[in-house]
Nucleic acid binder design. Structure first.
Lengths: 353, 353
DNA sequence: ATGAAAGCGCTAACAG
DNA sequence: CTGTTAGCGCTTTCAT
């Protein structure tokens, strides 16, 4: 059953190396010879063995991707882009979910290394220096996506600016009592940056962000969103507007608020972050900060392949893309999308990010 | 830089084969020896080479998965389950998106074969026999997920029953003029089955499904959903209820309907299929048919690994799981979830499928 | 419990 | 343009 290059060679009446060349196209092969080889391979049902080739090249045509979770639609356009770039380069993509667990990240990267993959992309849960260092390796290039990284290549968005956009918008709408639901620990530099921009813009506008109004969650999952809503409901004095640092979190947050009789945006304005696919179709269409997700994945993958082929001049990439505020109903700047006003939102977007 | 088993062996003062055994644990190794080996490996920064091992075993510890698109949240729990099972067996998961294109499916399966992967899972866009035959192979087991397959293992849901559930529910609510939006071509056996159950239950209830009221779409994407809504709006006589064969399609369909002033469920009741994650949080909470997605992925992966380890008795698996109707607001059986009635929906589910 | 020899399928390097 | 030689890193016999 295992048809090898030798079998094909024998049948085509050439040497194994010629078969190899006919397939990989690295060396010229006479058209006639090549035809014979291809036909012999066809007849024998030969399938090239990438493992053997990988053995020789000390590298396999695959790249690894580690994301916190596929359940967050935020990562889907990123992965789409990575796969598109990888396909152009004839590389397969191995996807691993870390569940935001640094140990799982490390384990995945380790597997990638054992498999001698060409490179890896990662959105790390934590940017703790010792964790990242344990990921670094000179044999396998790594590019960080959607997070900043000082010691290596990264492609991300200006989260400080993103946070600022939210604060400025809320201030512009007249809010003075503004709170926030923030996910992830101190290792989540993206959220830290959003908060920083948010807070400083608030202060520039003469507002503060009292710590009672900063609700923390571990993850971005529904259970945490609900807890955040409950925490909000228990506040003795509630803010009139809330910045939720991820759309996925905002969905559950708003849902629970409404279930408890708090109207959005009338009682509380909510602004999310990420502009995930479903933000537009929710019970309350979500005002949020859009990130160029597809673009991020694309740039990151391109940089990774540059490292893989050792083309670049070796200087670190630190790509910072621009976020953009998308105004929908949840912040109250537009009338709520109730059934009485069905014409409020005609636009429907289908951009890839 | 390439530290091999020989380097470790030299440093530990043993033979290469002993190092191999210390790592793979296939043969007994004296505790003392093993410690020395592990330490030497640690000091040298040795990383086992799975490619070389794969070369010997003629198989690499990876399985491939082909799904139409990750953008459809339907596939996420399936993938989660597959990854969980694969992790237990120390296998990596390569994910490929076919965009419902049979050629891409074939190409992906081919790559998997070239990479000598242990097996593959696939949700094929088309069950055209010649297409499937081209995917079959005796060297690499394949299990089909979420579709029926007569000539091989498959794990799916009773879509005929699913379609019936929808029809019966709509009839029970008093609808007599019922239409449908169906995606995919004739090769999509899942949708065909849903339609079959739907239609026969309708007829059993004394209703018919006139062909003017069957709107077809190519894919499940937003653009198609919008086209479907426009087609619906142009109907000279409209049904009072519509079965949309996928939630992802229903989202855009409802959105466009509402944007055009058609109320859901008051003017048209809509029932979806899949119960994707966001169905509950939409502008109109979606009545839909829930599928045991995580379970499907789990069973399929388990069957695949049984094939891989050649444990089973070789008889074909044909697992058929049960669908379940989830009633929310879009069918009108519950009051619409407007802001005036915020307590209508307290329940929030966090099941893995 | 450990080792020696042989080879998995392919391709780089060097001929011719 | 084509062939020969050697070896990628590991694990399987088969010995000891």
């Amino acid at each position: 059953m295992p048809v090898t290059i030798r079998d094909v060679a024998r049948r085509a009446g050439v040497s194994p190396i010629t078969v190899s060349r006919a397939f990989s196209g690295t060396h010229p092969v006479a058209e006639e010879t090549r035809r014979r080889v291809l036909q012999a391979a066809e007849e024998l049902g030969y399938v090239p063995n990438l493992v053997a080739r990988g053995m020789v090249h000390k590298r396999v045509p695959m790249i690894g991707v580690v994301v916190p979770e596929l359940a967050n639609p935020f990562f889907v356009p990123i992965i789409d882009a990575v796969q598109a770039v990888a396909r152009e380069r004839n590389h397969m993509v191995v996807i691993s979910q870390s569940q935001s667990d640094p140990d799982m990240e490390r384990a995945s990267i380790n597997q990638f290394r054992q498999m001698r993959m060409a490179g890896a992309l990662i959105t790390p849960a934590s940017m703790a220096p010792e964790h990242l260092r344990s990921l670094r390796d000179h044999d396998m290039p790594i590019v960080v996506v959607a997070r900043c990284w000082d010691d290596g290549d990264c492609v991300t968005v200006d989260d400080v600016a993103g946070g600022r956009l939210v604060a400025e918008h809320l201030l512009r709408l007249g809010h003075r009592r503004i709170g926030c639901v923030a996910h992830g620990g101190p290792g989540n530099v993206a959220v830290q940056a959003r908060m920083k921009g948010f807070r400083s813009a608030l202060e520039a506008g003469g507002c503060s962000l009292p710590s009672e109004w900063v609700i923390r969650t571990q993850t971005v999952r529904l259970a945490d969103a609900i807890q955040a809503a409950e925490a909000f409901l228990e506040l003795s004095e509630r803010p009139t507007a809330v910045f939720v640092t991820a759309d996925r979190l905002a969905i559950g947050f708003i849902h629970r608020l409404r279930a408890r009789g708090v109207r959005v945006p009338e009682d509380v304005a909510v602004v999310g972050y990420d502009d995930i696919r479903y933000a537009e179709f929710l019970e309350v269409p979500l005002t949020t900060v859009a990130l160029p997700k597809y673009e991020m994945g694309k740039r990151a993958a391109e940089i990774l392949f540059e490292r893989i082929s050792e083309e670049g001049d070796g200087k670190l990439y630190r790509v910072l893309l621009e976020p953009k505020l998308i105004v929908r109903a949840s912040c109250g700047a537009q009338p709520a999308n109730r059934q009485g006003h069905p014409f409020a939102f005609e636009s429907v977007s289908e951009n890839p990010s």
